[in-house]
Design a protein around this nucleic acid. Structure first.
Lengths: 143, 143
DNA sequence: GGCCAATAGTTTGTGCCCCAACTATTGTTA
DNA sequence: TAACAATAGTTGGGGCACAAACTATTGGCC
């Protein structure tokens, strides 16, 4: 029999979600550390490897991140030389975020990350894909 | 056909996990705000409603939280009157965390939260249970 | 053209998260 | 029993996350 207490910690989805997110990010930490990246910074790089330049606003949408979070984060990535932040001459409000050569070259290193994480987790790819689908549903439902 | 790029942002489980966790916590925010709680503080209260007193160390294990995170968080909960922090006379290193009457009474209010969240998400309970199982697997795999 | 609303970013404040260094207490062992 | 190791918690630093207040630019409209 399941615990009937609706406030039981162990059966809260929000708790499992928080712990899982932190646990998985913790797996990335030692892998990203040699590249000088945190996990949120890694996600920014993924977005830029997919398309560069991007406006900061577009990045903010893609990553579902507050502008107030993204702004200093991008400054750090600029400081370590992975990207440039330049105002769009056609619209001085907008910031164009562009990969530098150094940022582009980092992608080769990053290719090792996903297989390393999957190996470390030791879960079947199909399970991870199913999980990804379920999470996508939750994200859509929460929006 | 799936995107074959292993670094595609949209198919990273870690990204879906981060966004889903933030999105779901965002649903709790307005519900917890009247009680004066943040989501991590709510999780502490769930643990204490399950068992009180608890040592800070035990809480740290239950919530998978760093002592350095938990320590100030518990001070805030003490400041708003939901719990007491007292050294164990038998072992002065240990902190006993005990619900106050006010903290105990809060549980009645909190009973409204899970159904409100489930309603807001609008997903079938079975889906949420499946998701919880998958997340539990990931947490175990990551440990 | 001049006012006004909308838009893009920035800054500040509060809190979470982890790490590393630290203090204080307790347990172990030569 | 005196040294030493282990344990519990605290503190400070760097970074993330979000809200609210702010600046600067742009677009629409009289």
């Amino acid at each position: 029999m399941r615990d009937q207490n609706p406030l039981a910690l162990e059966q809260q989805v929000c708790f499992a979600l928080s712990v899982a997110a932190r646990s998985v990010v913790a797996i990335y930490r030692p892998l990203l550390e040699p590249m000088g990246l945190t996990h949120p910074q890694y996600l920014v790089m993924l977005a830029l490897w997919g398309e560069s330049p991007l406006t900061q606003r577009r990045l903010s949408e893609l990553l579902a991140l507050d502008p107030g979070t993204l702004s200093p984060l991008l400054k750090r990535l600029e400081a370590i030389g992975y990207l440039r932040r330049e105002r769009d001459p056609a619209d001085e409000r907008s910031l164009a975020i562009t990969l530098t050569d150094s940022g582009r070259e980092l992608r080769a290193e990053a290719l090792k990350i996903p297989p390393a994480v999957v190996a470390r987790l030791g879960l079947p790819i199909e399970d991870l894909q199913r999980l990804h689908g379920a999470l996508t549903q939750v994200i859509a439902a929460a929006s």
